[in-house]
């Protein structure tokens, strides 16, 4: 006999007890995508998914069912990624302050009024901005634009804007100064805004770089 015949108690237990293999089917894509968008390496992202689910399996008894399985597993993955970034922060210089510096200079290159918008770079009106978030195409462009950010900038941006982790925690995790964090976020936003303007909001006007 290989399996215990389920009695009433064990059947009820099974009903509320999560099945780790089912997690792979139900949450595997979500966790993989979450990890991939942050580490940008498919093999590493797969490892993170595996480590997350193994940690979930080991800590299953502590899962009280107060949050959804996905939220709970996402929390485990998030902590694992933060540990990973913490190690990276200790090992390497995490800043990437050159990113977009030239473009920022060009954006405010104005002989008559220094540090005011250069007419060619000033933000144009975004038509149909109101319903952009409801359109699938917008999300493809948004994802593509955020994917163009350099790794470190993207990591900082995702931690701050997507995961909504506080600036203080990001600075502590990545071992960077608040000012460097701020410059990286500022340039990430400028670059993302410009990319969206070109590839989504003005795509049909042919205003491409």
């Amino acid at each position: 006999m290989t399996e215990t015949e389920p009695g009433n108690a064990s059947a009820a237990d099974a009903a509320i007890r999560p099945d780790p293999e089912r997690w792979v089917d139900n949450h595997g894509d979500y966790l993989f995508h979450f990890a991939l968008s942050r580490v940008r390496d498919a093999t590493k992202a797969e490892d993170f998914v595996q480590e997350t689910l193994l940690a979930g399996l080991r800590g299953m008894d502590r899962y009280q069912g107060r949050s959804s399985e996905r939220t709970w597993l996402g929390g485990i993955l998030r902590n694992k990624l933060l540990d990973h970034f913490r190690t990276l922060g200790r090992e390497t210089s995490f800043t990437d302050l050159d990113f977009y510096a030239d473009e920022e200079e060009r954006a405010f290159e104005n002989r008559a009024f220094p540090d005011h918008w250069n007419a060619a770079h000033a933000p144009s009106e975004w038509s149909a901005a109101g319903d952009a978030l409801d359109r699938e195409e917008f999300w493809k462009v948004f994802h593509s634009c955020s994917g163009k950010l350099p790794d470190r900038i993207a990591r900082v941006f995702l931690l701050r804007e997507v995961d909504r982790i506080s600036s203080d925690e990001i600075c502590a995790t990545l071992n960077i100064s608040p000012n460097n964090l701020w410059v990286m976020l500022h340039r990430a936003r400028m670059a993302l805004r410009r990319c969206l303007e070109i590839h989504w909001f003005n795509a049909d006007t042919g205003d491409a770089e």
Binding site: D29, F32, H33, L133, F138, H143, E161, V162, R164
Partner: peptide, 15 residues
């Protein structure tokens, strides 16, 4: 949009 990114783009990459 960034706040909604996690829910919106799961179809883009699969395990």
């Amino acid at each position: 949009a960034s706040g909604k990114l996690a829910q919106k783009d799961t179809s883009l990459s699969k395990l």
